[in-house]
């Protein structure tokens, strides 16, 4: 019988990361990442054709910190609620760290005065390590199912 302790721990990390963004608590979001980390969002077409451009590219923790600071201090964003559903978690190797893991995500958006709409879907491709006893994201690639995005991507996924 497989020991699912680590799977549950990964699940808890994903839940924390998604709800931190839903609740716009960016310090909690940053706390999901390791001290050395990378974060990026990719459109389908670029992945299919091997093009390197990313919709969001943070190859270091500093860049992720800068993006969060830009969101908090300087970006103009139409107010909205976002709801992230993360499911179908696939932990590739549940015994060794760093471990590779994937999950599917869907994000819904609700603008003030309007009905809820579906925003984007895709998959996370993650590398997860342990720091000070807790699992952290060392690298997260968000790969969209689509090549086109509705409106803008003001927040991480």
């Amino acid at each position: 019988m497989r020991d699912f302790t680590l799977d549950l721990e990964v699940q808890a990390l994903y839940t924390e990361c998604a709800t931190a963004l839903d609740e716009r608590e960016f310090e909690r979001f940053l706390a999901c990442f390791a001290s050395e980390c990378a974060y990026s969002i990719h459109a389908k077409e670029n992945v299919d054709r091997g093009w390197p451009i990313a919709l969001v590219s943070c190859p270091s923790r500093g860049l992720l910190v800068d993006r969060v600071a830009a969101i908090q201090k300087s970006s103009f964003v139409i107010p909205r609620v976002q709801r992230r559903l993360v499911s179908s978690v696939r932990v590739a190797s549940a015994t060794e760290l760093p471990l590779r893991s994937q999950a599917s995500f869907a994000v819904f958006e609700t603008f003030e005065g309007e009905a809820t709409t579906f925003f984007v879907a895709g998959r996370f491709e993650d590398t997860i390590c342990r720091e000070r006893g807790e699992l952290k994201l060392a690298a997260r690639k968000c790969i969209l199912d689509s090549s086109i995005v509705p409106n803008s991507l003001p927040f991480p996924l």
């Binding site: 919709l55 590219s57 860049l63 830009a70 139409i78 991507l153």
Partner: peptide, 18 residues
Amino acid sequence: LHANFFGPGGLVTGDDIE
């Protein structure tokens, strides 16, 4: 790296799109 300023997730163009 500097493509971070442009496109749907652009640190600058994001403002415009809104």
